[in-house]
């Protein structure tokens, strides 16, 4: 097994390089950071030409990637526009841990911007994921045990209503109800936007209050999918011989279901959760935007719309590494859950 792990980690190196080339090429092909610079109109052509030269955006894309990867401190930049390099470059490159500086918040290190947002996002996403998993298990197992009963049908109908609605809908309705209407009616209410009230500060109780609505919205739309997988996997194993055997042996019904059936039914859920975990780092773009949560999803959106290569590449590379690791861990968990699984 340890040889398998080492092999996987070695495979990750070329994979990450290829992924970074692909992402860089796509990033540079999708937007021009100098088109409007965040303004309401195009940037004057003289400024575009100058900034393009100073920021190295006029270089061939291959060279831009090289600078991103290994830095440009071994070469020079043409600052005065005479076609000759005159000032040494400042980047030391990703391989030396320098992701460059943001093109939006000019002068701020990209990694600094990202690391500042990661805790905010995880505070929101991890509880959400835990609640979703707990609920899906409960709902999925419950419906599986009562397949085609009225309660199963009602749960099914509701979960598909939740799943078929865009998240903005759930988010806006819950905000209108719990934050606006409740307040107008003089009931206890929740805050509308933000991670905390700036006048009070980032206290635990503030953050907790502000978390409720985003988590509620994400839970409603995610539960449907997860619980369907749990339900269907449970149905698969419930009828199998060893469950019947276990029951015949006289173990309590609950123990049977939870220990034996769930363990064998969990492969699809483990797969999905394993794939979700790296994206917890990426945050939730729509939810974070609607609730004004200062997380990674919004950071990604704000910087991708400005084609801010250093920051966006930083975010994507962090996620890529997380994907590689989480998939390795998921494969290990498979083997744990089903000892018959072997990797060669």
């Amino acid at each position: 097994m340890s040889r398998y792990i080492i092999r996987r980690l070695l495979q990750a190196i070329p994979l990450l390089i290829i992924v970074s080339v692909l992402l860089f090429a796509l990033m540079r092909a999708t937007g021009d950071p100098l088109a409007t610079l965040g303004g309401r109109r195009q940037v004057r052509s003289a400024d575009r030409e100058r900034l393009s030269r100073l920021l190295g955006l006029d270089k061939p894309i291959g060279l831009q990637y090289l600078y991103w990867l290994v830095g440009n401190d071994w070469t020079t930049i043409d600052t005065d526009g005479d076609g000759e390099g005159d000032t040494p470059g400042q980047l030391s490159g990703v391989l030396r841990g320098d992701f460059g500086t943001s093109l939006v918040s000019r002068g701020r290190p990209a990694m600094g911007i990202i690391l500042e947002r990661i805790p905010n996002t995880l505070i929101l996403m991890i509880p959400a994921e835990i609640i979703v998993i707990a609920f899906s298990l409960a709902v999925g197992v419950y419906s599986a045990l009562r397949q085609y009963s009225l309660s199963d049908q009602v749960i099914t109908a509701f979960s598909f209503v939740g799943y078929s609605l865009p998240i903005f809908f759930v988010a806006l309705v819950s905000m209108t109800l719990f934050a606006v209407k409740f307040r107008q009616w003089g009931w206890p209410y929740l805050p509308t936007v933000g991670m905390f009230d700036p006048q009070v500060g980032k206290t635990t109780s503030q953050v907790l209050q502000h978390m409720v609505l985003p988590i509620l919205s994400m839970t409603i739309i995610t539960i449907a999918g997860y619980s369907r997988f749990v339900r269907s996997s449970m149905l698969e194993v419930i009828h199998q011989d060893y469950i019947r055997t276990a029951r015949a042996k006289g173990l309590g019904e609950r123990t049977v279901i939870y220990l034996h059936a769930l363990k064998n039914a969990s492969l699809p859920l483990v797969t999905i959760v394993g794939l979700d975990i790296p994206f917890l780092l990426g945050g939730a773009i729509v939810t974070e935007s609607i609730f004004g949560w200062p997380g990674m999803g919004r950071l990604f959106l704000d910087h991708v719309t400005r084609a801010d290569t250093p920051v966006v590449m930083g975010i994507l590379m962090i996620i890529s590494v997380a994907v590689v690791l989480s998939q390795l861990v998921t494969d290990m968990v498979y083997a744990l859950l089903d000892p018959r699984i072997r990797y060669t």
């Binding site: 994979l15 992924v19 992402l23 991708v304």
Partner: peptide, 11 residues
């Protein structure tokens, strides 16, 4: 895994 890391938005 590579496909996972490429945001749909880019494509």
């Amino acid at each position: 895994e590579a496909m996972f890391t490429v945001p749909q938005l880019f494509l």
